[in-house]
Design a protein around this nucleic acid. Structure first.
Length: 880
DNA sequence: GTCTGCTTCCC
DNA sequence: CGGGAAGCAGA
């Protein structure tokens, strides 16, 4: 193992203790020590010309020496504060968790030293020493960086850096630490050419200025190791023989910006393929502006074949530890078996992800119908002769006109008529035989049984199960007919028993026939039930998820059956296990308007009923974007200002949230909905519109504003940031202008205006409105005037911003600017800004008060945006 | 007073 | 040695 040398704690290591005597027995590196053999010239080697002006006459190399990293340091590591460095903590390990960071020197045949220091991680930008410390612990003692390891042929020119740790320099010491390190660096550079060199006062001053700047912008949660090889010349000066190489970035495991993303807990792990289901997820610390929830699917080879993101806004991130979001729809709405996918957290700023968790998409209730059964069957069966669909009536593929005929043009439209007839005739005889005497039981049975033969031959247990389910209603019906034919003694009792039989999921024959879209069987079952003494009970029976046949009738979008069921006494208000009434179910289905109307025409229906989540039918219809259902509900008298019990939202909030412009428009124009109603978080629909992530944010805001939405209403979100500071002054202004505003209430929250601060296109909507209407908006102008008054504190005005953004859009300089300011995670946000990405960025910088104008100018020069910098120079000189 | 982020402390 | 949390200070 190579010997490790560590520099003196003495910060003057280079400046004074340098040309020193062999230091000590502990092995502190001592360049002039006799033990450091340089030289041994080999004639075939070329003199290293790149070793500058220094007199390294006896050093030889083959080609240019360089360093490779054999073992990268781990990507994540806990940076500890000095006060934490008692006892032992883990040291920096290699990226494979076993080894430690290791590098190798190439193209060099003499002994050399390899130095390891800590530098900034910003790739692409110039690396500077990092304010944190890289300590090495050895024998109970800690040594500060830099660390040196001698390498030679014996060690294969490899240097193994063991026992290192990163010490988080406290904020208040960052500047001092930086100055110290930058001085050393500058001095070392000077000493390469002149051993006696010291820093002049101009250089010292420059270092202080630089340190001031870096102190503000240095990323304290990411560092990198810097390795560089040196030899010592006869004066004892260390001469670099390679370019520095940098390790991959090491991120602070304890920070929210770089810490590990983790899903701690979720309230459920399944969703319908249709998506839109609400999920609560507990997570390790995240930033609300910097987190996404990704759903994805892998094929057998582990390749990603689908992905989508959970839907939520900033307002849905609870503190930094929980998110309430909605599932995205799965790509295939027609799956018949549960689909396993994955869910994970994703941090846009660095692309980092949490571990993936399994997540399951369930087939939609609506999808289980004949068509997909047939398809499924085809795919798995090799018999070719078996067409599952053949067994069912009303499918003309079998060539059994008999059945069709027999089932009497079984257009379901006829159904309610027939039932009406039966009911009006007052058939109360509880004898099914009467009813069935009309049809040719023999013939029907024969056909049923024939088709059943085709069902034999199965491909797997799940399919057997499935077939049994599918066949359930038909089998029961067959049995009932056989029973009636035999005219047995206990017939009636037996039929009663059969009708109450249950299949998988607790389905009665009626549930089952409805679930699988067997509308003719449904019809005959209903006919049977008409005459049954337990009709009402049977009609209202609930399966294991609490659903009644009526639920399935609307799920299958069968208005006639729905009507028939209601006529037979189905209870329209009976709810399933989640508190969904048939109306709740129906309004969520976009094309089931007819069922909604049938239900709404029912006298006893409660249209304001809440489901277990606290939503009314109007909320659900709105959420689902079912425009027709919303209209029907409103016509039927639904209270548009009713709020949901989970968030206190009106239908307007929900419509805006879902981006359903047509519904928003309808609610605003055709109903007396209260546009400024606040939900439990204090947000109005306008707040929701502003944070809307879709492309419709602007349109929605405009609509709301047109209908009297007030952008100054504040929510309950107290944020102690610069936005708030600005707000206070703005509140003051507001009080002066029209102090009797009923919305102030002393609330300190965010107004829609605040939320729109980095969305210039929406601000434009607000401002545009202000010019046209009401005294309300004179605030805006007042506010802008304030900005003119004091450019120093209020930054650029709108006109200046626009000009500047034109310059930065042209050169794409805004991207560099964002990177320089460590807000590259917002690049996408600005990129999608419809007006100008640069304008978005400038507004953001303004609102967040990131930079003074002077700093802005400096930064622009740093990234080579001279023209923009000149422009700022120009306007600031005019103003002063 | 209240929230958040930083620092220190503890097991 | 990783995890948690108390305590403190600034916004």
């Amino acid at each position: 193992m190579p010997e490790v040398y560590t520099a003196f704690e003495n910060e003057d290591f280079f400046s004074s203790g340098y040309e020193l005597q062999a230091m000590n027995t502990r092995g502190i590196y001592s360049p002039s020590s006799g033990s450091q053999e340089t030289a041994s010239v080999s004639s075939s080697m070329s003199v290293l010309s790149s070793l500058h002006d220094n007199e390294l006459t006896d050093i030889t190399v083959i080609g240019d020496p360089y360093i490779t990293i054999l073992e990268q340091p781990t990507e994540k590591f806990r940076f500890r504060y000095k006060s934490e460095m008692v006892g032992t903590h883990g040291s920096l390990v290699g990226s494979n968790r076993k080894n430690v960071p290791t590098v190798q020197l190439h193209n060099f045949l003499d002994p050399a030293v390899i130095r390891c220091t800590l530098v900034t991680s910003d790739e692409g930008l110039s690396r500077i020493p990092h304010a944190h410390k890289l300590i090495r612990r050895d024998g109970g003692q800690d040594y500060d960086d830099p660390h040196y390891i001698t390498v030679s042929a014996e060690t294969g020119y490899t240097a193994i850096f063991q026992g290192m740790a990163i010490i988080h320099t406290a904020k208040r010491h960052i500047r001092d630490e930086l100055i110290k390190k930058m001085r050393l660096e500058a001095l070392e550079k000077k000493k390469n050419t002149n051993i006696k060199a010291i820093l002049n006062s101009r250089e010292e001053a420059q270092i202080k200025v630089d340190a001031d700047h870096y102190q503000k912008h240095m990323n304290l949660n990411s560092v990198a190791l810097c390795f560089q090889a040196f030899v010592t010349n006869h004066c004892g000066v260390m001469i670099p023989i390679t370019e520095p190489v940098y390790s991959q970035t090491i991120n602070n495991l304890k920070s929210a910006l770089t810490g590990e993303l983790k899903i701690c807990r979720m309230d459920k792990l399944t969703s319908s393929v249709e998506g839109g289901e609400e999920i609560f997820i507990l997570v390790e610390k995240v930033g609300k502006k910097n987190i996404r929830i990704k759903f994805f699917e892998l094929n057998e080879d582990g390749c990603e074949i689908w992905s989508a993101y959970g839907r939520f806004s900033e307002l849905d991130v609870h503190h930094q530890y929980a998110i309430v979001f909605r599932t995205p729809p799965y790509k295939d709405q027609n799956i018949t078996l549960p689909k396993n996918v994955f869910i994970q957290l994703e941090r846009p700023s660095d692309g980092d992800c949490s571990d993936a968790r399994k997540f399951t998409y369930k087939p939609s209730d609506r999808i289980i119908d004949i068509k997909c059964l047939g398809r499924k069957r085809q795919r798995i069966s090799y018999s070719g002769s078996s067409e599952l669909s053949n067994i069912l009536p009303n499918t003309n593929s079998i060539g059994n006109e008999n059945i069709s005929e027999l089932l009497n043009n079984s257009n379901s439209h006829e159904l309610s008529k027939e039932i009406k007839k039966i009911l009006s005739e007052g058939t109360t005889t509880p004898v099914c035989k009467d009813f069935l005497s009309d049809i040719d039981v023999d013939n029907y049975l024969k056909l049923l049984l024939n088709s059943e033969e085709n069902m034999l031959g199965t491909d797997g247990p799940s399919i057997v199960q499935y077939q049994d389910d599918v066949m359930f209603a038909k089998n029961i019906l067959t049995e009932i007919m056989q029973c009636m034919k035999m005219d047995a003694k206990n017939m009636e009792e037996y039929i009663q028993k059969l009708l109450k039989d249950r299949s998988t999921y607790g389905d009665s024959p009626l549930h089952s026939a409805l679930r699988y879209g067997q509308h003719n069987i449904v019809k005959y079952l209903l006919m049977l039930l008409c005459t049954n003494k337990d009709c009402k009970t049977l009609i209202n029976s609930q399966n294991s998820s609490g659903k009644t046949p009526l639920h399935y009738a609307v799920l299958q979008n069968q208005p006639e059956i729905t009507k028939a069921l209601l006529m037979l006494g189905a209870d329209p208000n009976r709810t399933d296990d989640h508190g969904f009434s048939p109306l709740h179910v129906a309004v969520k289905i976009s094309d089931a308007g007819a069922c909604v109307d049938v239900l709404l025409s029912e006298k006893g229906i409660n249209i304001e009923a809440y489901n277990d989540a606290g939503w009314t039918a109007l909320h659900l219809a709105t959420k689902a974007g079912s425009y027709d259902a919303v209209c029907s509900l409103v016509h039927a008298g639904a209270n548009v200002n009713n709020t949901d019990m989970s968030y206190g939202r009106t239908a307007l909030h929900i419509a805006v949230e879902g981006g359903h412009k047509k519904i928003v428009e309808y609610l605003l124009k055709k109903t007396n909905i209260s546009v400024n109603k606040r939900n439990f978080s204090g947000n109005t629909a306008l707040h929701t519109a502003v944070v809307h992530t879709g492309t419709r944010a602007k349109e929605l805001c405009a609509l709301l504003i047109q209908h009297g939405a007030d952008p100054y209403i504040q929510n309950h979100n107290r944020e102690s940031n610069d936005v708030n500071k600005k707000k206070e002054s703005h509140v003051n202004v507001k009080v002066e202008v029209h102090s009797e505003d009923e919305n102030i209430e002393g609330a300190i929250g965010q107004s829609s205006f605040d939320l729109a601060m980095n969305k210039p296109d929406i601000l434009q909507v607000f401002n545009g409105q202000s010019e046209k209407t009401t005294n309300k908006m004179c605030l805006v102008t007042t506010k802008l005037e304030l900005k003119h008054e004091d450019l120093e504190t209020n930054w650029l005005n709108n006109e200046h911003k626009e000009k500047l953004s034109i310059l930065l859009d042209k050169t794409q300089g805004w991207q560099k600017l964002a990177k320089q300011l460590n807000i590259e995670y917002l690049l996408q946000t600005f990129q999608h800004n419809s007006i100008s990405p640069s304008l978005g960025l400038l507004n953001y910088i303004d609102v967040e008060a990131i930079l003074s104008l002077m700093d802005m100018q400096t930064v622009l020069r740093e990234i080579g945006e001279e023209e923009a910098a000149d422009y700022i120079n120009e306007i600031s000189s005019i103003c002063s």
